[in-house]
Simulated scan of single mutants.
Amino acid sequence: MWGGIVVVAVLVTVVAVGARTEDNSLVVPPPTATEQNDTVALLRDAAEQQDICYGWELKQGGGDVVSAGSNLGVGLSVVDHPQCPRWLRVAATVDYTPESSEAEDFARVVVDGSPEFLYDLFKLETSLSRFGLDGAAFLAEPGWAVTRAAVSLSLLVVERGVVSPEPVVTSAPIAAPSPLPAAGSDLWRERSGWLIGATGMVLIAVLLVVVGLVERRRQRGGAAVTARHGKGRARRGR
């Protein structure tokens, strides 16, 4: 009797654990707190520059909202918000199916917006795949994908010409550099070797002249000394 009770308890536990594991695998993971906060900061900058509110919404297959946010903050929607007369939002629905089901996992991504963007919504939606934000990305990492898609909208509206790009701030013009001194005549540059040789020969000649003059002066000095000595001996002889 006790053995049968134990077997039944074990089977119930195994079934419960398996069901809980399967349920966890069907849960759509939201973006992390860091991803949400970073996305809000980026969307806030874009909204200030473009005067357009941006947001995101991630739902589970049954319709439950997993995550939402915008430039207004985490959990705040831009839809019909008084501070956002012009707005765009990425809305994604991800549905994970049990392994026992023949149905496949499903991800649907749409871009919603205020009336003035009506004719741009489909193009914006299809352009997200250029950033790698296709259905496979939303199934693999739905939280990361939906926040990145919201940030990408601000780039796509500029590309579409809906808003003008932020003007580039340029520095003050730099004063024109002073002109270089005028170059010498090419005549001298072309004959520079000849001039250097001639200058060297002149210097050698001058040096030889100076040496000759010094030597001659010494000879004259020596002759004068000899003459004085000769006169001295002549006086003594008298």
Rank of each mutant, 00 (worst) to 15 (best):
Val79Arg: 15
Asp80Lys: 14
His81Glu: 01
Pro82Asp: 05
Pro85His: 07
Leu88His: 03
Leu88Glu: 01
Ala91Glu: 15
Ala91Pro: 02
Ala92Ser: 07
Thr93Leu: 09
Tyr96Trp: 05
Glu99Thr: 14
Ser100Arg: 09
Ser100Glu: 14
Ser101Leu: 10
Glu102Leu: 13
Ala103Cys: 11
Asp105Cys: 06
Arg108Trp: 11
Pro115Ser: 02
Pro115His: 04
Leu118Ser: 14
Tyr119Thr: 14
Asp120Ala: 12
Asp120Met: 08
Leu121Glu: 01
Leu124Asn: 01
Thr126Ile: 03
Thr126Asn: 00
Thr126His: 00
Ser129Thr: 12
Ser129His: 10
Asp134His: 00
Gly135Ala: 09
Gly135Phe: 01
Ala137Ser: 07
Phe138Gln: 00
Phe138Arg: 01
Pro142Gly: 02
Ala150Ile: 13
Val151Phe: 10
Ser152Phe: 00
Ser154Tyr: 03
Ser154Met: 03
Leu155Gln: 11
Val157Asp: 01
Glu159Gln: 15
Val162Leu: 09
Val162Phe: 07
Ser164Leu: 11
Thr170Asp: 09
Ile174Thr: 12
Ile174Lys: 12
Ile174Leu: 15
Pro181Met: 10
Gly184His: 14
Asp186Asn: 08
Trp188Ser: 03
Ser192Glu: 08
Leu195Glu: 04
Gly200Pro: 05
Gly200Ile: 05
Met201Phe: 09
Ile204Leu: 13
Val209Leu: 15
Gln219Asn: 11
Gly222Glu: 15
